[in-house]
Amino acid sequence: MHAVEVSGISKSFGKTEVLKDISFSVSKGEIVGLIGPSGSGKTTVVKTIIGMEKADEGKVTVQNQRMPNRLLLNQIGYMAQSDALYMELSAEQQLVFFSKLYGVPKNKRKQRISECMGLVDLEKDLSKKVMIYSGGMKRRLSLALALLHEPDILVLDEPTVGIDPRLRKQIWEKLQLLKEQGGSILVTTHVMDEAERCDRLVLLLEGSVLAVGTPQELKNQFNTDSIESIFLLKKAGESA
């Protein structure tokens, strides 16, 4: 059984076709990386999985149930590409608010909040207003919010942008840990060393899936020694 299954989705905004017949899946205990150049449609895929965009064709299932489905959102931890935080509130107020929305039991709330904030190294800044957070701190808070309700599935849209290498390493270790505990993780990224850490990669180009496979498989397929050069190859191929 796949945790997330995307089958044949297409999506147009007005006349521009943004996604063309996209299919891939994320299994239990797997980290799948969605990679592709800017504007290739990664965020649109992610939003369709969450149910915020509706595919014109094809379907998305989560835990074998068809999305969009409001109650399934409880099993998904989502981190948007742009931080959407309530600037006036303190981090703690924010976390309490979202834990209520996700129905985290009252007696577990405090513990979950300090665990998640510990992971992103923000325990000391719990009572600070988000307005005075730095860009990276906001990013980390967004990640903490996604982990709050211990979801089985994580959908993270460029989670590590603006986060320093030490913390990035720490976050990836945590993702590995969650995966080993049976979590399923879909992560979009531009960072190639992160792509290497994924179990499988979905390479997106101009709204189509160009290739799917483990990092090694992709390298073999394109006959290069790094994921990065696949991008460069592809770009060069186009302009030629």
């Binding site: 969450i50 959102l73 948007a80 959407a84 935080l85 929305l101």
Partner: peptide, 14 residues
């Protein structure tokens, strides 16, 4: 406009 509505709607809120 700040995107928090989208964020809110990614939770099981009605």
């Amino acid at each position: 406009t700040t995107g928090t509505l989208d964020r809110l709607l990614a939770t099981p809120v009605k």
